[in-house]
Design a protein around this nucleic acid. Structure first.
Lengths: 227, 227
DNA sequence: CGTGCGGTTGAAGTTTATCAAGGATGGTGG
DNA sequence: CCACCATCCTTGATAAACTTCAACCGCACG
Protein backbone atom coordinates (compact mmCIF):
# COMPACT_ATOMS: atom_id res chain seq x y z
CA UNK A 1 0.00 0.00 0.00
CA UNK A 2 1.40 3.36 -0.92
CA UNK A 3 2.07 5.83 1.80
CA UNK A 4 0.24 8.67 0.14
CA UNK A 5 -2.95 6.68 0.31
CA UNK A 6 -3.02 6.17 4.10
CA UNK A 7 -5.64 7.91 6.21
CA UNK A 8 -2.87 9.78 8.08
CA UNK A 9 -1.78 11.34 4.82
CA UNK A 10 -5.25 12.01 3.53
CA UNK A 11 -6.16 15.65 3.21
CA UNK A 12 -9.74 15.01 4.19
CA UNK A 13 -9.34 12.69 7.18
CA UNK A 14 -10.54 15.36 9.59
CA UNK A 15 -13.88 15.42 7.76
CA UNK A 16 -14.07 11.67 7.35
CA UNK A 17 -14.28 8.73 9.73
CA UNK A 18 -10.80 9.12 11.30
CA UNK A 19 -11.95 12.41 12.86
CA UNK A 20 -10.42 12.58 16.37
CA UNK A 21 -8.85 9.13 16.22
CA UNK A 22 -5.61 8.04 17.84
CA UNK A 23 -2.76 6.90 15.63
CA UNK A 24 -3.30 3.25 16.57
CA UNK A 25 -6.96 3.49 15.63
CA UNK A 26 -6.19 5.07 12.32
CA UNK A 27 -3.77 2.28 11.51
CA UNK A 28 -6.42 -0.31 12.24
CA UNK A 29 -8.88 1.53 10.05
CA UNK A 30 -6.26 1.71 7.33
CA UNK A 31 -5.96 -2.06 7.47
CA UNK A 32 -9.57 -2.70 6.53
CA UNK A 33 -9.78 -0.05 3.84
CA UNK A 34 -9.71 -1.15 0.23
CA UNK A 35 -8.43 1.54 -2.11
CA UNK A 36 -10.18 1.18 -5.40
CA UNK A 37 -9.32 2.13 -8.91
CA UNK A 38 -10.75 5.38 -10.17
CA UNK A 39 -14.43 5.52 -11.06
CA UNK A 40 -15.34 7.39 -14.20
CA UNK A 41 -18.37 9.55 -14.89
CA UNK A 42 -21.58 7.50 -14.70
CA UNK A 43 -19.86 4.51 -13.12
CA UNK A 44 -21.68 3.30 -10.06
CA UNK A 45 -20.44 2.34 -6.61
CA UNK A 46 -23.61 0.31 -6.10
CA UNK A 47 -27.20 0.09 -7.26
CA UNK A 48 -30.50 -0.02 -5.42
CA UNK A 49 -31.37 -3.56 -4.41
CA UNK A 50 -27.81 -4.73 -3.99
CA UNK A 51 -26.92 -6.15 -0.59
CA UNK A 52 -24.88 -3.90 1.67
CA UNK A 53 -21.27 -4.91 1.35
CA UNK A 54 -19.33 -1.74 1.95
CA UNK A 55 -19.56 1.93 2.70
CA UNK A 56 -17.49 4.23 0.52
CA UNK A 57 -15.51 7.30 1.51
CA UNK A 58 -14.88 9.77 -1.29
CA UNK A 59 -11.15 10.46 -1.74
CA UNK A 60 -11.36 12.73 -4.75
CA UNK A 61 -13.94 13.79 -7.30
CA UNK A 62 -17.66 13.64 -6.54
CA UNK A 63 -20.72 11.42 -6.60
CA UNK A 64 -24.47 11.70 -6.57
CA UNK A 65 -26.87 9.50 -4.65
CA UNK A 66 -30.33 8.96 -6.07
CA UNK A 67 -33.38 6.80 -5.70
CA UNK A 68 -35.87 5.73 -8.34
CA UNK A 69 -39.62 6.18 -7.95
CA UNK A 70 -41.98 3.36 -8.84
CA UNK A 71 -42.36 4.76 -12.34
CA UNK A 72 -38.61 5.00 -12.82
CA UNK A 73 -38.05 8.69 -12.19
CA UNK A 74 -34.70 9.63 -10.71
CA UNK A 75 -34.56 11.69 -7.53
CA UNK A 76 -31.13 12.87 -6.50
CA UNK A 77 -30.85 12.88 -2.73
CA UNK A 78 -27.29 14.11 -2.21
CA UNK A 79 -24.05 15.21 -3.82
CA UNK A 80 -20.92 13.83 -2.19
CA UNK A 81 -17.53 15.55 -1.96
CA UNK A 82 -14.17 14.23 -0.71
CA UNK A 83 -14.40 13.08 2.91
CA UNK A 84 -18.08 12.18 2.64
CA UNK A 85 -19.08 8.62 3.39
CA UNK A 86 -21.71 7.03 1.15
CA UNK A 87 -24.07 4.15 1.86
CA UNK A 88 -25.40 4.65 5.39
CA UNK A 89 -28.96 4.31 4.15
CA UNK A 90 -28.26 0.64 3.40
CA UNK A 91 -27.70 -0.33 7.03
CA UNK A 92 -31.43 -0.45 7.74
CA UNK A 93 -32.27 -3.38 5.49
CA UNK A 94 -28.71 -4.50 4.72
CA UNK A 95 -29.63 -3.54 1.17
CA UNK A 96 -28.94 -0.35 -0.73
CA UNK A 97 -32.15 1.62 -1.33
CA UNK A 98 -30.26 4.11 -3.49
CA UNK A 99 -27.75 4.34 -6.32
CA UNK A 100 -24.37 6.06 -6.07
CA UNK A 101 -22.81 7.32 -9.30
CA UNK A 102 -19.62 9.19 -10.08
CA UNK A 103 -20.10 12.71 -11.49
CA UNK A 104 -16.50 12.82 -12.71
CA UNK A 105 -13.36 10.72 -12.43
CA UNK A 106 -13.22 9.98 -8.73
CA UNK A 107 -11.41 7.88 -6.14
CA UNK A 108 -12.96 6.16 -3.14
CA UNK A 109 -11.91 4.16 -0.11
CA UNK A 110 -14.04 1.07 0.31
CA UNK A 111 -14.96 0.26 3.90
CA UNK A 112 -16.30 -3.30 4.18
CA UNK A 113 -19.21 -3.01 6.58
CA UNK A 114 -18.52 -6.23 8.46
CA UNK A 115 -14.96 -5.11 9.19
CA UNK A 116 -16.21 -1.72 10.25
CA UNK A 117 -18.66 -3.41 12.59
CA UNK A 118 -15.92 -5.56 14.14
CA UNK A 119 -13.61 -2.62 14.50
CA UNK A 120 -16.40 -0.70 16.21
CA UNK A 121 -16.45 -3.42 18.84
CA UNK A 122 -12.92 -2.45 19.84
CA UNK A 123 -12.96 1.29 19.26
CA UNK A 124 -15.76 3.26 20.89
CA UNK A 125 -14.58 6.34 19.04
CA UNK A 126 -15.27 4.70 15.72
CA UNK A 127 -18.79 3.84 16.83
CA UNK A 128 -19.34 7.34 18.04
CA UNK A 129 -18.01 8.78 14.82
CA UNK A 130 -20.35 6.59 12.79
CA UNK A 131 -23.30 7.71 14.94
CA UNK A 132 -22.24 11.33 14.69
CA UNK A 133 -21.98 11.13 10.93
CA UNK A 134 -25.40 9.55 10.49
CA UNK A 135 -26.93 12.04 12.89
CA UNK A 136 -25.35 14.85 10.92
CA UNK A 137 -26.93 13.51 7.77
CA UNK A 138 -30.31 13.61 9.49
CA UNK A 139 -29.71 17.28 10.27
CA UNK A 140 -28.79 17.99 6.66
CA UNK A 141 -31.95 16.29 5.48
CA UNK A 142 -34.05 18.44 7.77
CA UNK A 143 -32.41 21.51 6.35
CA UNK A 144 -33.08 20.22 2.83
CA UNK A 145 -36.75 19.75 3.70
CA UNK A 146 -36.97 23.37 4.74
CA UNK A 147 -35.25 24.55 1.58
CA UNK A 148 -37.72 22.68 -0.60
CA UNK A 149 -40.81 23.68 1.35
CA UNK A 150 -40.16 27.30 2.16
CA UNK A 151 -37.67 28.71 -0.32
CA UNK A 152 -38.33 30.13 -3.78
CA UNK A 153 -36.43 28.86 -6.79
CA UNK A 154 -33.99 31.74 -6.48
CA UNK A 155 -33.42 31.08 -2.78
CA UNK A 156 -32.99 27.36 -3.36
CA UNK A 157 -30.29 27.88 -5.94
CA UNK A 158 -28.55 30.57 -3.89
CA UNK A 159 -28.59 28.31 -0.87
CA UNK A 160 -27.30 25.43 -2.96
CA UNK A 161 -24.36 27.44 -4.28
CA UNK A 162 -23.53 28.88 -0.88
CA UNK A 163 -23.69 25.45 0.68
CA UNK A 164 -21.43 23.98 -2.00
CA UNK A 165 -18.99 26.82 -1.49
CA UNK A 166 -19.00 26.22 2.22
CA UNK A 167 -18.30 22.54 1.72
CA UNK A 168 -15.44 23.30 -0.66
CA UNK A 169 -14.06 25.71 1.91
CA UNK A 170 -14.14 23.02 4.59
CA UNK A 171 -12.01 20.90 2.30
CA UNK A 172 -9.36 23.52 1.79
CA UNK A 173 -10.58 24.69 -1.62
CA UNK A 174 -11.85 28.13 -2.45
CA UNK A 175 -15.32 28.65 -0.98
CA UNK A 176 -16.15 31.29 -3.57
CA UNK A 177 -14.72 29.93 -6.78
CA UNK A 178 -15.37 26.38 -7.91
CA UNK A 179 -16.42 24.09 -10.71
CA UNK A 180 -19.80 22.37 -10.70
CA UNK A 181 -19.32 18.68 -11.36
CA UNK A 182 -23.06 18.19 -11.88
CA UNK A 183 -25.17 19.28 -14.83
CA UNK A 184 -27.94 21.87 -14.66
CA UNK A 185 -30.34 19.01 -14.99
CA UNK A 186 -28.92 17.30 -11.92
CA UNK A 187 -29.07 20.53 -9.92
CA UNK A 188 -32.70 20.98 -10.93
CA UNK A 189 -33.52 17.40 -10.08
CA UNK A 190 -31.99 17.80 -6.63
CA UNK A 191 -33.68 21.14 -5.92
CA UNK A 192 -37.06 20.28 -7.39
CA UNK A 193 -36.74 22.76 -10.28
CA UNK A 194 -36.88 22.41 -14.04
CA UNK A 195 -33.62 22.68 -15.91
CA UNK A 196 -34.89 25.86 -17.58
CA UNK A 197 -35.53 27.50 -14.23
CA UNK A 198 -32.03 26.62 -13.04
CA UNK A 199 -30.54 28.14 -16.17
CA UNK A 200 -32.68 31.27 -15.96
CA UNK A 201 -31.89 31.88 -12.31
CA UNK A 202 -28.17 31.40 -12.84
CA UNK A 203 -28.19 34.11 -15.49
CA UNK A 204 -30.41 36.23 -13.26
CA UNK A 205 -27.99 35.92 -10.33
CA UNK A 206 -25.22 36.88 -12.70
CA UNK A 207 -27.09 39.94 -13.96
CA UNK A 208 -27.63 40.94 -10.33
CA UNK A 209 -23.88 40.78 -9.80
CA UNK A 210 -24.20 38.09 -7.17
CA UNK A 211 -22.27 35.42 -9.03
CA UNK A 212 -20.35 34.97 -12.22
CA UNK A 213 -21.04 31.94 -14.37
CA UNK A 214 -18.89 30.49 -17.11
CA UNK A 215 -20.36 27.16 -17.97
CA UNK A 216 -19.54 24.98 -14.99
CA UNK A 217 -17.33 27.57 -13.31
CA UNK A 218 -18.98 29.56 -10.55
CA UNK A 219 -17.78 32.60 -8.65
CA UNK A 220 -19.66 33.78 -5.61
CA UNK A 221 -19.36 37.58 -5.53
CA UNK A 222 -21.38 38.71 -2.51
CA UNK A 223 -21.01 37.90 1.19
CA UNK A 224 -24.63 36.74 1.45
CA UNK A 225 -23.71 33.84 -0.77
CA UNK A 226 -20.18 33.28 0.44
CA UNK A 227 -20.93 33.31 4.17
CA UNK B 1 -42.04 0.40 38.49
CA UNK B 2 -45.35 -0.97 37.35
CA UNK B 3 -45.40 -4.12 35.33
CA UNK B 4 -47.58 -2.74 32.58
CA UNK B 5 -44.93 -0.17 31.78
CA UNK B 6 -42.04 -2.58 31.09
CA UNK B 7 -40.70 -3.00 27.57
CA UNK B 8 -41.77 -6.67 27.63
CA UNK B 9 -45.34 -5.62 28.14
CA UNK B 10 -45.25 -2.76 25.70
CA UNK B 11 -47.38 -3.18 22.63
CA UNK B 12 -44.91 -1.37 20.44
CA UNK B 13 -41.62 -2.93 21.52
CA UNK B 14 -41.23 -4.76 18.21
CA UNK B 15 -41.16 -1.39 16.45
CA UNK B 16 -39.00 0.28 19.05
CA UNK B 17 -35.47 -0.27 20.31
CA UNK B 18 -36.02 -3.69 21.94
CA UNK B 19 -36.63 -5.16 18.48
CA UNK B 20 -34.99 -8.63 18.42
CA UNK B 21 -33.55 -8.36 21.93
CA UNK B 22 -33.06 -11.17 24.43
CA UNK B 23 -34.96 -11.04 27.70
CA UNK B 24 -31.83 -10.13 29.62
CA UNK B 25 -31.11 -7.23 27.29
CA UNK B 26 -34.64 -5.95 27.56
CA UNK B 27 -34.39 -5.98 31.34
CA UNK B 28 -31.20 -3.94 31.19
CA UNK B 29 -32.84 -1.48 28.85
CA UNK B 30 -35.80 -1.29 31.19
CA UNK B 31 -33.46 -0.31 33.99
CA UNK B 32 -32.24 2.84 32.31
CA UNK B 33 -35.61 3.96 31.01
CA UNK B 34 -37.35 6.80 32.78
CA UNK B 35 -41.11 6.72 32.37
CA UNK B 36 -42.38 10.26 32.32
CA UNK B 37 -45.65 11.86 33.17
CA UNK B 38 -47.96 12.55 30.27
CA UNK B 39 -47.18 15.44 27.98
CA UNK B 40 -50.10 17.58 26.88
CA UNK B 41 -50.71 19.23 23.53
CA UNK B 42 -48.01 21.81 22.77
CA UNK B 43 -45.76 20.65 25.61
CA UNK B 44 -42.21 20.07 24.44
CA UNK B 45 -39.81 17.21 25.02
CA UNK B 46 -36.93 19.52 24.20
CA UNK B 47 -36.12 22.67 22.27
CA UNK B 48 -33.52 23.50 19.66
CA UNK B 49 -30.27 24.56 21.29
CA UNK B 50 -30.67 22.40 24.37
CA UNK B 51 -27.86 19.94 25.07
CA UNK B 52 -28.59 16.32 24.25
CA UNK B 53 -29.61 14.61 27.44
CA UNK B 54 -32.00 11.89 26.35
CA UNK B 55 -33.72 10.29 23.44
CA UNK B 56 -37.45 9.72 23.79
CA UNK B 57 -39.52 6.74 22.70
CA UNK B 58 -43.19 7.47 22.11
CA UNK B 59 -45.41 5.19 24.22
CA UNK B 60 -48.77 6.67 23.29
CA UNK B 61 -50.09 9.72 21.50
CA UNK B 62 -48.02 11.58 18.95
CA UNK B 63 -45.43 14.31 18.49
CA UNK B 64 -44.09 16.56 15.78
CA UNK B 65 -40.47 17.47 15.22
CA UNK B 66 -39.69 20.83 13.67
CA UNK B 67 -36.85 23.23 13.05
CA UNK B 68 -36.93 27.01 12.83
CA UNK B 69 -35.46 28.95 9.94
CA UNK B 70 -33.33 32.02 10.55
CA UNK B 71 -36.40 34.21 10.23
CA UNK B 72 -38.36 32.11 12.69
CA UNK B 73 -40.49 30.07 10.31
CA UNK B 74 -41.44 26.60 11.51
CA UNK B 75 -40.68 23.60 9.31
CA UNK B 76 -42.12 20.32 10.51
CA UNK B 77 -39.73 17.49 9.70
CA UNK B 78 -41.59 14.48 11.07
CA UNK B 79 -44.65 13.18 12.88
CA UNK B 80 -43.93 10.54 15.50
CA UNK B 81 -46.23 7.66 16.49
CA UNK B 82 -45.90 5.12 19.31
CA UNK B 83 -42.68 3.12 19.02
CA UNK B 84 -40.82 5.94 17.28
CA UNK B 85 -37.66 7.25 18.91
CA UNK B 86 -37.10 11.00 18.85
CA UNK B 87 -33.88 12.96 19.10
CA UNK B 88 -31.31 11.18 16.94
CA UNK B 89 -30.51 14.41 15.14
CA UNK B 90 -28.96 15.72 18.36
CA UNK B 91 -26.15 13.16 18.47
CA UNK B 92 -24.12 15.05 15.87
CA UNK B 93 -23.43 18.15 17.96
CA UNK B 94 -24.67 16.80 21.30
CA UNK B 95 -27.25 19.55 20.96
CA UNK B 96 -30.81 19.37 19.69
CA UNK B 97 -31.17 21.14 16.34
CA UNK B 98 -34.95 20.62 16.42
CA UNK B 99 -37.97 20.94 18.68
CA UNK B 100 -40.24 18.05 19.65
CA UNK B 101 -43.80 18.90 20.67
CA UNK B 102 -46.79 16.79 21.68
CA UNK B 103 -49.73 16.90 19.28
CA UNK B 104 -52.06 15.44 21.91
CA UNK B 105 -51.81 13.97 25.40
CA UNK B 106 -48.93 11.55 25.04
CA UNK B 107 -46.61 9.30 27.02
CA UNK B 108 -42.91 8.77 26.41
CA UNK B 109 -40.05 6.66 27.71
CA UNK B 110 -36.98 8.75 28.33
CA UNK B 111 -33.70 7.10 27.35
CA UNK B 112 -30.74 8.94 28.87
CA UNK B 113 -28.17 9.01 26.11
CA UNK B 114 -25.15 8.35 28.31
CA UNK B 115 -26.80 5.21 29.72
CA UNK B 116 -27.75 4.12 26.22
CA UNK B 117 -24.13 4.60 25.16
CA UNK B 118 -22.85 2.53 28.07
CA UNK B 119 -25.38 -0.18 27.45
CA UNK B 120 -24.34 -0.26 23.80
CA UNK B 121 -20.87 -1.14 24.99
CA UNK B 122 -22.23 -4.39 26.39
CA UNK B 123 -24.94 -5.24 23.89
CA UNK B 124 -23.96 -5.25 20.23
CA UNK B 125 -27.61 -5.75 19.33
CA UNK B 126 -28.53 -2.45 20.90
CA UNK B 127 -25.83 -0.70 18.88
CA UNK B 128 -27.02 -2.38 15.73
CA UNK B 129 -30.59 -1.47 16.47
CA UNK B 130 -29.64 2.16 16.98
CA UNK B 131 -27.75 2.15 13.68
CA UNK B 132 -30.61 0.43 11.91
CA UNK B 133 -33.08 2.97 13.22
CA UNK B 134 -31.02 5.97 12.16
CA UNK B 135 -30.38 4.42 8.77
CA UNK B 136 -34.11 3.84 8.38
CA UNK B 137 -34.73 7.50 9.11
CA UNK B 138 -32.29 8.40 6.32
CA UNK B 139 -34.34 6.24 3.95
CA UNK B 140 -37.54 7.94 5.01
CA UNK B 141 -35.98 11.33 4.42
CA UNK B 142 -34.98 10.32 0.90
CA UNK B 143 -38.53 9.25 0.21
CA UNK B 144 -39.78 12.57 1.60
CA UNK B 145 -37.44 14.43 -0.73
CA UNK B 146 -38.94 12.62 -3.70
CA UNK B 147 -42.48 13.36 -2.53
CA UNK B 148 -41.74 17.06 -2.29
CA UNK B 149 -39.85 17.31 -5.56
CA UNK B 150 -41.87 15.13 -7.86
CA UNK B 151 -45.40 14.81 -6.54
CA UNK B 152 -48.34 17.18 -7.08
CA UNK B 153 -50.29 18.51 -4.12
CA UNK B 154 -52.87 15.77 -4.60
CA UNK B 155 -50.22 13.06 -4.73
CA UNK B 156 -48.43 14.43 -1.69
CA UNK B 157 -51.55 14.37 0.42
CA UNK B 158 -52.58 10.93 -0.85
CA UNK B 159 -49.14 9.61 -0.08
CA UNK B 160 -49.22 11.20 3.34
CA UNK B 161 -52.54 9.60 4.24
CA UNK B 162 -51.52 6.21 2.88
CA UNK B 163 -48.25 6.38 4.77
CA UNK B 164 -50.00 7.31 7.99
CA UNK B 165 -52.45 4.45 7.49
CA UNK B 166 -49.58 2.08 6.94
CA UNK B 167 -47.88 3.22 10.09
CA UNK B 168 -51.09 2.83 12.10
CA UNK B 169 -51.44 -0.66 10.65
CA UNK B 170 -47.93 -1.56 11.77
CA UNK B 171 -48.96 -0.58 15.28
CA UNK B 172 -52.01 -2.80 15.34
CA UNK B 173 -54.53 -0.05 14.62
CA UNK B 174 -56.75 0.19 11.58
CA UNK B 175 -54.71 1.17 8.52
CA UNK B 176 -57.78 2.62 6.82
CA UNK B 177 -59.62 4.43 9.57
CA UNK B 178 -57.87 6.82 11.91
CA UNK B 179 -57.88 10.21 13.57
CA UNK B 180 -55.43 12.91 12.53
CA UNK B 181 -53.72 14.30 15.59
CA UNK B 182 -52.26 17.17 13.60
CA UNK B 183 -54.08 20.20 12.19
CA UNK B 184 -54.49 20.96 8.49
CA UNK B 185 -51.95 23.67 8.97
CA UNK B 186 -49.40 21.20 10.31
CA UNK B 187 -50.04 18.82 7.43
CA UNK B 188 -49.55 21.67 4.97
CA UNK B 189 -46.41 22.79 6.70
CA UNK B 190 -44.97 19.29 6.51
CA UNK B 191 -45.94 18.75 2.87
CA UNK B 192 -45.03 22.19 1.61
CA UNK B 193 -48.62 23.16 0.86
CA UNK B 194 -50.84 25.98 2.02
CA UNK B 195 -53.56 25.14 4.49
CA UNK B 196 -56.18 26.06 1.86
CA UNK B 197 -54.73 23.57 -0.59
CA UNK B 198 -54.79 20.83 2.03
CA UNK B 199 -58.41 21.57 2.78
CA UNK B 200 -59.40 21.72 -0.89
CA UNK B 201 -57.69 18.46 -1.74
CA UNK B 202 -59.20 16.64 1.20
CA UNK B 203 -62.66 17.61 -0.01
CA UNK B 204 -61.64 16.74 -3.55
CA UNK B 205 -60.46 13.27 -2.51
CA UNK B 206 -63.74 12.85 -0.70
CA UNK B 207 -65.76 13.87 -3.77
CA UNK B 208 -63.76 11.35 -5.78
CA UNK B 209 -64.82 8.68 -3.32
CA UNK B 210 -61.25 7.93 -2.34
CA UNK B 211 -61.56 8.91 1.30
CA UNK B 212 -64.18 10.08 3.74
CA UNK B 213 -63.41 13.02 5.96
CA UNK B 214 -65.17 14.04 9.13
CA UNK B 215 -63.05 16.72 10.70
CA UNK B 216 -60.03 14.84 12.00
CA UNK B 217 -61.43 11.40 11.20
CA UNK B 218 -60.20 9.86 7.99
CA UNK B 219 -61.33 6.76 6.16
CA UNK B 220 -59.30 5.43 3.26
CA UNK B 221 -61.76 3.90 0.79
CA UNK B 222 -59.68 2.69 -2.14
CA UNK B 223 -56.84 0.15 -2.32
CA UNK B 224 -54.49 2.63 -3.99
CA UNK B 225 -54.51 4.58 -0.74
CA UNK B 226 -54.78 1.66 1.65
CA UNK B 227 -52.01 -0.47 0.16
C1' DC C 1 -18.96 16.24 -40.53
C1' DG C 2 -22.95 15.06 -38.51
C1' DT C 3 -25.15 13.88 -34.13
C1' DG C 4 -26.36 14.00 -29.41
C1' DC C 5 -26.11 16.23 -25.17
C1' DG C 6 -25.97 20.25 -22.38
C1' DG C 7 -27.30 24.75 -22.02
C1' DT C 8 -29.98 29.19 -22.93
C1' DT C 9 -33.97 31.96 -23.90
C1' DG C 10 -38.88 33.22 -25.10
C1' DA C 11 -43.97 32.44 -24.95
C1' DA C 12 -47.84 30.05 -23.24
C1' DG C 13 -50.00 27.29 -19.72
C1' DT C 14 -50.82 25.16 -15.09
C1' DT C 15 -50.48 24.59 -10.43
C1' DT C 16 -50.56 26.35 -6.22
C1' DA C 17 -50.24 30.48 -3.14
C1' DT C 18 -52.38 34.44 -1.49
C1' DC C 19 -56.15 37.30 -0.25
C1' DA C 20 -60.65 37.52 1.62
C1' DA C 21 -64.71 36.11 3.97
C1' DG C 22 -67.48 33.19 6.55
C1' DG C 23 -68.64 28.85 9.17
C1' DA C 24 -67.64 25.31 12.62
C1' DT C 25 -65.63 23.84 16.87
C1' DG C 26 -63.95 23.73 21.46
C1' DG C 27 -62.47 25.55 25.73
C1' DT C 28 -63.26 29.11 29.43
C1' DG C 29 -65.34 32.03 32.50
C1' DG C 30 -69.35 34.31 34.04
C1' DC D 1 -75.48 26.20 31.25
C1' DC D 2 -74.60 29.41 28.04
C1' DA D 3 -72.13 33.12 25.77
C1' DC D 4 -67.84 34.38 24.10
C1' DC D 5 -63.50 34.04 22.02
C1' DA D 6 -59.81 31.96 19.67
C1' DT D 7 -58.47 28.60 16.67
C1' DC D 8 -59.39 25.61 12.99
C1' DC D 9 -61.40 24.78 8.72
C1' DT D 10 -63.68 25.67 4.21
C1' DT D 11 -64.60 27.95 -0.10
C1' DG D 12 -64.20 31.44 -3.86
C1' DA D 13 -61.55 34.86 -6.59
C1' DT D 14 -57.23 36.59 -7.95
C1' DA D 15 -52.31 36.48 -8.59
C1' DA D 16 -47.77 34.69 -8.78
C1' DA D 17 -44.26 31.31 -9.51
C1' DC D 18 -42.74 27.86 -11.96
C1' DT D 19 -43.33 24.27 -15.67
C1' DT D 20 -43.88 23.01 -20.22
C1' DC D 21 -43.28 23.57 -25.03
C1' DA D 22 -40.41 25.17 -28.60
C1' DA D 23 -36.51 26.83 -30.91
C1' DC D 24 -31.78 27.56 -31.07
C1' DC D 25 -26.65 27.55 -29.94
C1' DG D 26 -22.27 25.37 -28.95
C1' DC D 27 -19.35 21.77 -28.09
C1' DA D 28 -17.41 17.15 -27.70
C1' DC D 29 -17.03 12.84 -29.81
C1' DG D 30 -17.34 9.17 -32.84
Amino acid sequence: MQNQLCCQQCHFSQLCLPYSFELKEIEKLDDIIVRKNPYHRRQRLFEAGQPLHSLYAVRSGSFKSFILSEDGQEQITAFHLPGDVIGFDAIHNKTHPSFAEALETSMVCELPYSSLDELGEMFPKLRQQLSRTMSGMLCQNQEALMVLNKYTANERLSHFLASLGHRFGDRGFSPTSFRLSMTRSEIGNYLGLSIETVSRILTQLQKDGKISVEGKLINLLVPTLAD
